[in-house]
Amino acid sequence: MTSVHHNTGERERAARRLLDSSAALSLDPLREVDWDAPLDTSYHGLSPEWSALYGTRYWSELDEDQRKELTRQEIASIFSTGIWFETVLQQMVLRDFYAADPADPNFQWALTEVADECRHSIMFARSVAKLRAPRYRPHPAAVRAGRWFAALAGGEAAYASILVAEEVLDVLQRASMCDERVLPLVRTVNNIHVVEESRHMRFARAETRDRLLSASTARRHASAVVIASVAFYIVAGMVSRKVYKTAGLDVARAVREAAANEHHKAVLRSSCAGLMEFLHSCGLLTRPAVAIYRRANLI
């Protein structure tokens, strides 16, 4: 993942600002989250409008308790997907900064980001357990692709993929963290993640632009497809089929209606408008990439 970096002085100043922000604003999930509070099943797990079934005929047939259980299982699945990708992210960042100058603020920031992601993964794991959810795993094909990606992805493909994953989750969490219909534990977890990931996303945007400065047209086009493919796997894997079984629904019907849910597709598209604008500004919205984003309902 090594590459020639430009504007070294500015990159170092940006890394120092991120380090200062981390020192001032980092939150400890072990202290901030009330892990001992009993699970209150009168709350949703995410804003109902973000449910994959919201707006469908099936949703209209569910009573409030069923809807709340569904959204709690959905957020447990989303957190599980977050854990999976954060472990991929950590490997990429560590590999990128392997044997780098420890005095470089960028190296120190990279380790800070990995430390944040470790804490986030533990926070998500404890949340999944608290939500009484089973183990939700990505599709085996996504797991295999993740192993390959963690070992080989580099440059703008790695950092833009990090950005895509974080942006999709960020918008969902921002919608839910102030929603009083959502479980207080989940709101607190969302708030912690949003605050800390805002730094990670700034870093990922800067690194994406920096790596593209030395990228050929062919490499940029190849990276565009890789990034779009990562987005597809993440969005497709956010809500496991197993969620519907755990929530006591008809799995086949739920999967069918979720796949055809125009409301959910519109929510995804609107939430990713800023991300798509950034990718377009970087020349990463090529025709093949756009086709993949359309399939993922992100554009």
Rank of each mutant, 00 (worst) to 15 (best):
A129E: 13
G274E: 07
G55A: 01
I192N: 01
L169P: 03
E156N: 10
K242Y: 12
A157W: 02
N191L: 14
D28F: 03
H5S: 10
R219E: 12
L213M: 14
S271V: 05
D65S: 14
A165V: 11
R95A: 06
A129T: 10
N297Q: 11
G154E: 06
Y244S: 01
V33D: 03
K265W: 10
R144Y: 10
R220V: 01
A15G: 03
N191E: 13
C272S: 11
C118H: 10
T217Y: 13
S51F: 06
E61Y: 10
I78Q: 11
S51C: 08
G283V: 00
E277K: 12
I234N: 13
G237L: 03
V267P: 09
N106E: 15
S240G: 01
D96R: 08
A153I: 06
L152M: 14
A231T: 06
S270G: 05
V88T: 04
Q90D: 11
S47L: 05
Y136G: 09
H263M: 02
P38Y: 03
C178F: 10
L284R: 01
E257Y: 05
W109L: 08
V33H: 00
A99F: 15
H280K: 11
R287N: 14
V235Q: 10
D179Q: 04
L163N: 07
L169T: 09
A99H: 15
L62H: 01
M201Q: 03
H44L: 04
E196R: 13
R256H: 06
Y54S: 14
L213F: 03
E166R: 03
V230Y: 13
S176R: 09
L18G: 10
F107K: 15
A252R: 11
G155L: 02
P184V: 03
